[in-house]
Design a protein around this nucleic acid. Structure first.
Lengths: 153, 153
DNA sequence: GATCTGGCTATAGCGACAACAAGCCAGGTG
DNA sequence: CACCTGGCTTGTTGTCGCTATAGCCAGATC
């Protein structure tokens, strides 16, 4: 990655407002990310989140509350026939925007942390394999050395 | 996301070998991700990593050692004229493969956690904006509802 | 041979997150 | 109206990652 303009001398600036750090402060723990995984897999109810992620209900409740406060999930009332009103957890747009992040982690783990190959596979509705890529508007895939970092405004 | 075949009944399988969880076990802490950020920005030396990430040298040493053991970084000897041999930390292919993950976090933070807009901007060498996308081979961008999850093999 | 410097290592303490276990509450069923 | 169930909440205890401070070591310089 090339550092452009005032960024060129790395000793003269600090990444104080870094979005990567802010994102890690918020979703930088295992349980939060696995809750997101389950949400993308279709889970909506509290007990299912806790058991499918494999954490205690105390842990799931704490993490879900943080994510609701943040705006990643929203609690929505629902009612099954003959049942009282309950709440389900649904991803907001902010939460759905984490799809590339979660799939990027999965893709990296599949490639580098699984001795026997990936256990699961993500494809599109036509069956074609899906990947997470860094790309410019014209569509070609980019590596770190093709990138330039600039100050915004 | 649609769960295909044996995955359809979510109560009948457990994500025990989940790549997302394994990835989070390894790079699921703020310091590790910020060390990766600095590596992509071009940092190679121990002291620079510690000060630019903003953690103590003890912390940086512990995290870097884990990442070297894992194969994300490698230590390489180098020698400046008139200096003794020292070591620098360089990303391996495994580490470079984390670019989409790190940029996905940045992109999400830029959009959802910055009140005044993104502080930095990533472009390609022609100046065109760069994004992290979930896409199929034919190139179009995909959302969660366009995806299908299958068992591998 | 003493000193300096970069690159760590050691120790102690704190806060976040986890597990386990138990308890609480609202509302529907019998 | 007692009981059950889903959805939490409240301890308690343990581990992990961070900070702060101090110390160590190897090799170049003086």
């Amino acid at each position: 990655m090339t550092l452009d303009g005032p960024l060129a001398d790395r000793d003269r600036w600090q990444a104080t407002r870094c979005s990567i750090g802010k994102a890690m402060d918020v979703i930088g723990n295992r349980t939060a990310v696995l809750l997101l995984r389950e949400a993308f897999y279709g889970t909506t109810r509290f007990h299912d989140f806790a058991t499918r992620v494999g954490v205690t209900e105390a842990s799931a409740a704490a993490r879900l509350r943080e994510l609701v406060d943040l705006g990643v999930f929203e609690k929505r009332p629902y009612r099954e026939p003959g049942q009282r009103t309950r709440h389900e957890y649904a991803l907001t747009e902010m939460g759905r925007d984490l799809l590339p992040t979660v799939l990027a982690l999965m893709q990296w783990g599949d490639r580098h942390l699984q001795s026997d190959g990936a256990p699961l596979r993500v494809v599109d509705t036509s069956g074609a394999p899906v990947r997470v890529q860094v790309r410019a508007d014209d569509g070609h895939d980019l590596a770190a050395e093709d990138l330039v970092l600039q100050v915004n405004r």
